[in-house]
Design a protein around this nucleic acid. Structure first.
Lengths: 227, 227
DNA sequence: CTCCCGCGTAAAAAAAGCGTCAACAGCATG
DNA sequence: CATGCTGTTGACGCTTTTTTTACGCGGGAG
């Protein structure tokens, strides 16, 4: 889940934000002055910062610059000041968004989501994209399989089958599920295909293809990939 | 020089934006309806889109979704509607920012700068935008390819294709992704184009074009650039 | 013990995909 | 107006991939 750093010197605003954010399963840290904010940002590495400009100890723009010196974390500025100059200054200092008080909680949360979303890396897939065994390595993101340092060439069907199995490492995948995921929803009984392609995967990846260690047959049920 | 796509059905707003943007050295395209906007976005590849939600031919949120189907270009929404629901809907559909009319030009431009800035690749401040192989060198920033000390002349399409591949060095890029990024979202099955242009890239860059080392074909899946 | 079914393997036939050459149209340039 | 460049499209031979067919093996049921 995402971590948010809330920075505001008005306790009631902090409380309202914290309650709303926690209800939506964000992890929340809070600070009421700039120095604390910078320290927390450095130690806690939030995914987004909500920053009030009117802080007691330092100018809000200085906080933005302090953050931008070392991180690109999204900064959502919150301010009572509505003048155009203030907004321009904050945005050009490195803020990502600027919301004037009083603000609607729904809107603020939506802007927060937008900020978090666009900060996500391109590969939106969750989880480790590389799976290693002692014999070979599968890189889901690059769609690449390596064995003894050399690339292994897989056909689209072989790759797709491998992908489904690896994404379910350790779990049994039924024949029907494999067929439908790889060949399409109208397939489900053509277990021939599985035997043929399993043999090819084993030939390309198993040290001893006739005694497979990683691509295990569960007779009558399906197949299982073991790391 | 950044390219902006302005979408609004009120001519005076478009004119005001275009004048201000051009004065600040942006390249500007404009559209007055959603269909044109989507087409221009596909063909011109703007760095940021300024989108009015009240278009004559389609719902603004649909335009956002149409863009988000294939690109992460920043979208700055412009709208006369101020209700929280509208904002939330647009932001959650994939917009990056939401400004209500009437708006201050200074603020809009500052938000535009913020949107463009954060969309820049991480290594933008002098990072390694140059990729070298033993045969040739690609400079992403300068949009230049060098081989044996001499510049290689690439057509716009060739360059675009090369760019996508190089930005994904080592990763397999699917045929569909290549087609959509280079030719636009309505393409996806015209694999013929890829074959023709791959051949041209190889002829210009590979030492032995018929045995490519860097532009690898993964039959049925896509292509991969290897350094 | 024998039969039968599911499994693995191999090799065929069929289909799909790839690279290449060449022609053509649109467009900007000179 | 001619020219050259670019992007699009078609045709063809060839290779790879998928599908289909065939056959041997082994374990469990009867």
């Amino acid at each position: 889940m995402n971590r948010v750093l809330v920075v505001d010197d008005e306790p009631q605003i902090v409380r309202a934000l914290v309650i709303n954010l926690k209800a939506r399963k964000y992890e929340v840290d809070s600070a009421s002055d700039g120095a604390t904010a910078l320290r927390l940002a450095a130690t806690r590495h939030p995914d987004v910062v909500v920053l009030d400009l009117g802080l007691p100890d330092m100018d809000g723009v200085e906080v933005i610059k302090g953050l931008r010196g070392w991180t690109r974390v999204p900064i959502l500025v919150l301010s009572a000041r509505q003048t155009s100059d203030e907004k321009v200054e904050a945005l050009d200092a490195g803020a990502d968004d600027y919301v004037t008080k009083p603000f609607g909680m729904d809107e603020l949360l939506a802007r927060l989501r937008a900020a978090v979303r666009r900060a996500e890396p391109v590969g939106a897939g969750g989880g480790a994209a590389v799976v290693r065994t002692e014999g070979f390595t599968v890189d889901l993101a690059a769609k690449k399989v390596t064995r003894d340092g050399a690339d292994v060439r897989l056909t689209p069907t072989e790759w797709h089958l491998l992908e489904v199995l690896v994404r379910n490492t350790g779990r049994l995948v039924s024949q029907k599920q494999l067929l439908q995921e790889v060949w399409g929803p109208s397939y489900g009984t053509e277990t021939h295909y599985l035997r043929v392609y399993m043999a090819q995967l084993r030939r390309k990846l198993e040290a001893d293809p006739s005694h497979p260690r990683h691509f295990v047959t569960e007779p009558g049920m399906g197949y299982r990939f073991e790391r």
